[in-house]
Nucleic acid binder design. Sequence first.
DNA 1: CTCAAACTTAAAGTTAAGTTAAACTTAAAT
DNA 2: ATTTAAGTTTAACTTAACTTTAAGTTTGAG
Lengths: 128, 128
Amino acid sequence: MKKKKYSISELASELEISPSSIRFYEEKGLINPERTKGNQRIYSMRDRARLKLILRGKRFGFSLSEISEMIGFANSEPEEKHQLERSLEYSEKKLSEIAQRKEELELIEKDLLEMKEKFIKRLQKLKE
Amino acid sequence: MKKKKYSISELASELEISPSSIRFYEEKGLINPERTKGNQRIYSMRDRARLKLILRGKRFGFSLSEISEMIGFANSEPEEKHQLERSLEYSEKKLSEIAQRKEELELIEKDLLEMKEKFIKRLQKLKE
DNA sequence: CTCAAACTTAAAGTTAAGTTAAACTTAAAT
DNA sequence: ATTTAAGTTTAACTTAACTTTAAGTTTGAG
């Protein structure tokens, strides 16, 4: 069991983002690291995992507030039936968004493949 | 053969974006519609196709300047060998970016599926 | 203890991608 | 011919997501 703790700059360089971005995410309510006696931030493995999730979400195209919403749902322990149903719906909605993105990805890929083929053919003609 | 021409607002409503966005894309050099005698923009099928490509690229996460670069490559008719090779490289680079995105998509999908399963299990426990 | 490196906050600055507003022109409908 | 809907340009405004700066504090090495 690793209990490693990170300073802000350690974590930043590991994740290849700037310390300021990490502070910015905190300001937006996406993470909440502990503090030392002297008020400096200390990040746990859990914090690091959460940051990775944030970055993945960003690369996918979610906005910070969407990510924040998702994290909220993921971390709440809703024992009330209605709450649970809402959370379930939410995750289904996001999953269908992902399905749509996948399709779009295929379309773009097709465009690019066609482009590539054209270039290849032209190159071959040049060699004749 | 359809030779339909569009006014800016027709095209905008068809693509579900605002006329101002279309003008903005033009300002950024992404399209270049013809003009009427009275200086109003007229869009051809070709322009419409290009706009669709722009929107697809955006949904994928490309920035406007990346899209602009892509369009440049797609539309150039490079007959010089070196140019062609550069274009080929470019399309391969973009294709590998897409492959990466696909993997990330899978990761996020996994996260969300886990979340969903959790919610479902809790709901079932409530019913016991 | 001292000093530099790393940290802190708060506020201002930046960039991308639009949107909105003002002032004017063109096209279409009656 | 007149009115109105749609279009034009230019410039200012907006929002998200950071980044930078300034001024001060904490930590770790020697």
